[in-house]
Design a protein around this nucleic acid. Structure first.
Length: 554
RNA sequence: UGGGGUGUAGCCAAGUCGGUAAGGCACCAGACUUUGACUCUGGCAUUUCGUAGGUUCGAGUCCUGCCAUCCCAGCCA
């Protein structure tokens, strides 16, 4: 699937780049993905990764991975490892290198001093509450801090003492001197440095002042030679500040920020905050629960990087607020897995069938194809015996109109084997069907009926004495509400959790060979869906996605 | 009620200098089928591009007003 990595459809960002290149503003393209190591990557992150990486690739440029670790309060080394792992799993090599925003702290400090010297930044003693008051509101301008006009010398001294640890957390900040009456609140003398006596995962106690994102990010971009800084749309309001920093710090090539709409998906949440909540409240099994939209969750579920990227690519890049249909993602995996997986037989809900006209001690081997359209993938053998299992869903005692599977007195094809006829239904004392007494058309075997009669339905089966027991987990949407993102304000999304997001079948049977399957091998369980062995629990298969069915009763 | 975005079919999304609405998914109909899968064929915006006007021979594309919706008042990113 090289299409996803290489040629990307053109979009408004590429239009800008084409223009920049044509006008000679830039010579080569350099992008970056700047995750904060405070959680696991999800499919929305994958969109940002894909946009940045594929853009660089399209123009023969470079792509950096940069940990945006400027706030040690929220960040953890644990996440650094997972981010790189997920990035590589996606196949997105950081061709420009791997960097840490925190490695530029010295530079940030120098640039802050430069700003102070030029009268463009000052140390402010306002408390958090006061600063909020001074900031004004959306409709009212703010007012200048009383500390705004300190001398350069005093500011330099105070800033150094902030760095040296003389002041308590929150007691002072370094602010950019811009415009307290700007209609854009981000420009009302934004804080660019705060005091935080916190251990940094990478630099220990070297620093007790840390730059804010708005100050650090353009510097990181500028220092790395990033030409096009592609981020999501909520940073659009920050662009004037980004440009202010770039202009006032000054770089060889000025990076520019462009924003695209982040990825939302139906029936799930995408923000790290809520994903964390799902994990912490034990609503899911962890960040890698197969129901999670995290990359590790999707991986455990059996999704492939190519399918994820294909999905993102097909959805395109725009600035429209949108909610992508999770079924589209499903379509993308199925399309790939249909081509790439071998077929196997699994019975989710076994129903025993006794073939009365078949000898008890006989075992016959039937060949079945590993992929119906790829004969080069060969065949394998399935044992056939007097007692077999079929899936309960393939039998109806009182078939509804249009049901072409097994029913009393009806015939059906056993895939790759005989035609089966149901003669008798055995019930328990409660009236539940426990077993079927059937016969098989010995004459036709695995061929077309000799008398030319048509048998429409085909079902899968497994010899009761030649199968392996296992558990199968079926995953459905985590939420029962299509657009969960719109009601996150209330903080009560738990009420929209669906109760069937995980359905476990505990008495399933699969072909014996599946006993040795690994979590890296994906299969199509014939007529059922795509499955992969769970990486955490032995003897458990996860359903990646179901097969479509055009059967609609009534 | 300040500023910044966005509004093209059920979903995503193309629409260059204005010239007469790409594509994918979904859906519908049919063919094929020892997976009711896959594949194939056809259909699927023409009082139509949020809406109301305007300019023009001609407007999704230009102009004006209006409406809807998202983001911003962290010493988060």
């Amino acid at each position: 699937m090289e299409i996803v990595m290489g040629e990307t459809n053109s979009n408004f960002i590429h239009d800008v780049i084409d223009k920049d290149l044509a006008e000679g503003k830039v010579k080569e393209i350099h992008t970056r993905f700047p995750p904060e190591p405070n959680g696991y990557l999800h499919i929305g992150s994958a969109k940002a990764i894909w946009i940045n990486a594929s853009t660089a690739k399209k123009y023969g440029g470079k792509f950096n991975l940069r940990y945006d670790d400027t706030n040690p309060v929220k960040e953890d080394d644990e996440y650094v490892k997972s981010i790189e792992e997920d990035l590589r799993w996606l196949g997105m090599e950081p061709t420009g290198g791997i960097f840490y925003g925190s490695d530029y702290f010295d530079k940030c400090y120098e640039f802050a001093q430069k700003l102070i010297r030029e009268g463009k930044a000052y140390v402010c003693d306002l408390s958090q509450e006061q600063m909020s008051e001074y900031r004004g509101t959306l409709t009212q301008p703010g007012k200048n801090s009383p500390y705004r006009d300190r001398s350069v010398e005093e500011n330099l001294d105070l800033f150094k003492r902030m760095k040296d640890g003389e002041f308590a957390d929150g007691s002072r900040t370094l602010r950019a001197k811009i415009d307290m009456s700007s209609p854009n609140i981000n420009m009302r003398d934004p804080v660019i440095y705060r005091i935080l006596h916190v251990n940094h995962h990478r630099h220990g106690n070297k620093w007790c002042i840390y730059p804010m994102y708005d100050f650090a990010h353009p510097i990181q971009d500028g220092l790395e030679g990033i030409t096009h800084s592609l981020c999501s749309i909520e940073f659009e309001n920050h662009r004037p500040l980004y440009d202010w920093v770039v202009e006032n710090v000054g770089f060889e090539v000025s990076p520019h920020q462009y924003e695209f709409a982040r990825l939302n998906m139906t029936y799930t949440v995408m923000s790290k905050r809520y994903l964390r909540k799902l994990v912490e409240n034990k609503i899911v099994d962890g960040w890698d629960d197969p129901r999670m939209p995290t990359l590790c969750g999707l991986r455990r579920r059996g999704y492939t990087p190519t399918a994820i990227l294909d999905f993102i690519s097909r959805n395109g890049v725009s600035k429209n607020y949108s909610v992508a249909d999770v079924r589209y993602l499903e379509y993308c995996v199925c399309e790939e897995l249909n081509e790439t997986t071998q077929r196997r037989v699994a019975i989710l809900e076994p129903l025993k069938v006794v073939i009365t006209n078949y000898p008890e001690d006989k075992t016959e081997m039937f060949e079945t194809s590993n992929h119906p359209k790829k004969p080069e993938w060969g065949k394998r053998e399935l044992a056939f015996t007097r007692e077999i299992y079929i899936d309960r869903s393939d039998f109806m005692e009182e078939p509804v109109p249009g049901f072409i599977r097994l029913a009393p007195g009806k015939e059906v094809r056993l895939m790759s084997a005989y035609i089966l006829k149901c003669n008798e239904v055995v019930h328990d004392e409660n009236g539940n069907v426990t077993q079927l007494m059937c016969t098989v058309d010995l004459e036709t075997g695995n061929n077309k009926p000799v008398d030319g009669r048509k048998v429409k339905g085909t079902i899968h089966w497994l010899s009761a004495s030649n199968c392996e027991k296992c558990k199968i987990r079926i995953y459905n949407n985590l939420f029962n509400k299509e657009n969960v993102a719109t009601l996150l304000e209330e903080d009560t999304f738990e009420e929209f959790l669906s109760d069937d997001s995980l359905v476990e079948y505990t008495d399933c049977f699969v072909e014996p060979s599946l006993k040795d399957a690994t979590p890296d091998e994906r299969f199509q369980f014939v007529r059922t869906g795509y499955f992969v062995k769970d990486s955490k629990n032995d003897g458990v298969f996860n359903r990646t996605a179901p097969l479509k069915s055009s059967f609609k009763p009534e």
